[in-house]
């Protein structure tokens, strides 16, 4: 069963919240209420560019119980595959888009006694709704938010106004670093840490927590991988006996969709597992870019997550 159900929305408001970040407010085209969602959820936004369809996941940032609109924030990435550029350059008030229903791959741990949120840059987005939810539930949380500079940090003032001393800001241009080791070293049992941001920051935070003796079960991270750019290759479809070329700036999933082939997907960021596909042959090496398959599964070469992974080589044969 594919998850291609989409809702039509239009942009009600666009705001530049930092030098490279824009916030978009989306409402249903017929002004119907949107679904409630849980803190940490995201939607996939479907953008119809001139020559192709781009689908990117963005965290929902508003209050989960507000069904009148959704808010997303988009960081403009240079040299990207076009999604963030499209949102920044082509999407204005009144633009119509399609979005998926909310999906949550980064929920707060309901059994935690305390939540320690660690954000870097645009990684703040999933924490916006999460804090809204935790605050409404009266849960204990604190946010440690690292930004390049005051000008690049989105929502700093808003967060401080809303949550006061529970927000700690660290400005990189003033050599302020998140003192994570100290933060983690003296927490009572029942604390959970969540990290979202650039990959090096996530890796550093996870390593720091492990070295502080935190068990894996208390450490959570979210990272959406945009499909990396690579060289073109051919996908052979064993069941439908077709051959499709995947362009250098395309994912396998996008190439399939462009050719009218319906493949299952949800998060499009290598996290949810929905697009797991059997590999029946590979003329080259699989470059696994997902967070879903186990190391053993990756090593076996029998499975691939077609939303983010590609191959270096000439061709791969999939059971599709």
């Amino acid at each position: 069963m594919t998850a291609s159900y989409l809702r039509r929305v239009k942009v009600a408001e666009v705001e530049r919240v930092a030098s490279r970040i824009k916030r978009f407010r989306l409402v249903d085209v017929e002004n119907k209420p949107l679904s409630e969602f849980s803190g940490g959820s995201h939607v996939t936004v479907c953008m119809r560019a001139q020559d192709r369809v781009i689908r990117n996941p963005y965290s929902l940032m508003g209050c989960p119980s507000d069904t009148s609109s959704y808010q997303i924030s988009v960081l403009k990435v240079d040299n990207s595959r076009g999604g963030s550029q499209f949102m920044h350059d082509n999407v204005v008030v009144g633009t119509e888009l399609e979005i998926s229903e909310p999906l949550n791959l980064f929920p707060p741990a309901k059994l935690a006694r305390k939540h320690i949120l660690v954000a870097g840059g645009i990684g703040i987005t999933p924490f916006m709704s999460m804090m809204s939810e935790l605050d409404a539930l009266g849960s204990d949380f604190e946010l440690h938010y690292g930004v390049r500079s005051a000008a690049e940090g989105a929502f700093c003032k808003l967060l401080e106004a809303r949550y006061g001393s529970r927000i700690r800001l660290y400005l990189q241009d003033q050599d302020q670093m998140v003192p994570l080791e100290r933060i983690l070293s003296n927490q009572r049992l029942g604390a959970h840490m969540y990290v979202c941001g650039p990959k090096p920051m996530i890796d550093w935070a996870l390593r720091t927590a492990t070295l502080a003796g935190w068990p894996d079960e208390s450490i959570h991270s979210e990272q959406f991988n945009a499909p990396p750019i690579g060289k073109p290759f051919v996908v052979k479809l064993a069941r439908s006996r077709r051959e499709i070329t995947v362009g250098g700036h395309q994912s396998i999933l996008e190439a399939l969709e462009q050719n009218g082939i319906d493949a299952p997907f949800l998060c499009r960021g290598g996290a949810c597992g929905q697009c797991e596909t059997e590999v029946s042959g590979c003329d080259g090496f699989i470059e696994h870019n997902d967070h879903y398959l186990s190391e053993a599964e990756k090593a076996s070469g029998r499975k691939i997550m077609i939303c983010v992974s590609r191959i270096s080589g000439d061709a791969v044969t999939l059971d599709l």
Partner: peptide, 10 residues
């Protein structure tokens, strides 16, 4: 012991 223990206890 657990009622007063910190993260890092295994």
């Amino acid at each position: 012991i657990l009622s007063g223990a910190s993260m890092g206890l295994r």
